[in-house]
Amino acid sequence: MNQLISLLVENEAGALMRVAGVLTSRGYNIESLTVAKTLDPTLSSMTIVADVAEESRVLLIKQITRLVNVVKAVDLTESNAVQRELALIKISSVKPEMRSSVAKEAEIFRARIVDVAPTHYTLEVTGSPEKIDALIDLLHHYGDVEMTRSGSMAMARMPANRLPYPMFRAEPSAEESQTTPVVESK
């Protein structure tokens, strides 16, 4: 099952390699990984989606947290975190009579048409990964689809400094892990 992990890491060479290394050396496939700067220029945020068995998820968070330059790791899989993705979708070979339908579908999904040509459209859409999957499925009916996706970005709903699960505990209590994300903060 996919695990959704949000990280705060020192913005320095090698940070990505170390985090990716923890996952790959355990044989987990990374579905998506995004890195970007934060308000504090010395820190980067990362969002990782990886295929991790449920029973290994806490262990993985701890192993990532153990890295010297990881400041915080949060498991958002079972939280109600905001999760968004951006996709650019190009749909070509659209039959003339279908063009208006494509524009309609785009509207329903609140996608923006960012480029138009006689035979194709380019759409920009943001949303949950499921929504983007749904739009792509639909567009296949209208022509040939190419796309590029950003991978997930996620954010917990409460401020980071108010996330529960205190430092270094061996394991969150049962109630904690049911209601809130697993956090290892240092």
Partner: peptide, 13 residues
């Protein structure tokens, strides 16, 4: 903390 529950579940860590 990685060691706690890694191989054998701990009743108390």
């Amino acid at each position: 903390p990685v060691e706690i529950n890694k191989n054998r579940r701990a009743d108390v860590g």
